[in-house]
Amino acid sequence: MDGVSSEVLRLRAPRHQVSRKSITLWTLHALIGWTVLLVPQAVVLIFAATPLQVAAAIATLVVGTAHTLVMPRWRYRVHRWEATPDAVYTLAGWLNQEWRIAPVSRIQTVDTKRGPLQQLLGLSTVTVTTASAAGPVSIEGLDHDAAVRLADELTTTTQATPGDAT
């Protein structure tokens, strides 16, 4: 650790943002999640409304609305990615954030995946796996064309690298 200057190192943000449509995707995810929580409560309220249950339902509604409004926009400002000839670099999360770096020379597989909501919005997730059980790097919410291009690019550079990547 010698020779490290006193200046504080920081990670710079990856270069590219994900597609703006991701906001819609995350909003839908949040909506579905909170609906699943709210509907049973509403059903219970119809039949028997005690003050405690009313309070719980209102609390769920308030927290759910706040989460659905804030989380997608916050996430959109955080989520970024970058692929250089040497490495794939991502940043994800909102309250808790995580940077992941995988060297291209260690990449084993490159997948693109689209869930039903993502298909609806024309989005894709690119997942890059390495030999580590803990090291997959995912880029969520890319435009489908961009995702396919990125996957092709990574596959080409990976194939050009010799070795078994462990």
Binding site: L11, N96, Q97, W99, R100, I101, A102, P103, T130, T166
Partner: peptide
């Protein structure tokens, strides 16, 4: 070492 993950929770930040 074949990659890094750097995690920062809200409180860690």
């Amino acid at each position: 070492i074949i990659g890094w993950r750097i995690y920062r929770s809200f409180f860690q930040r």
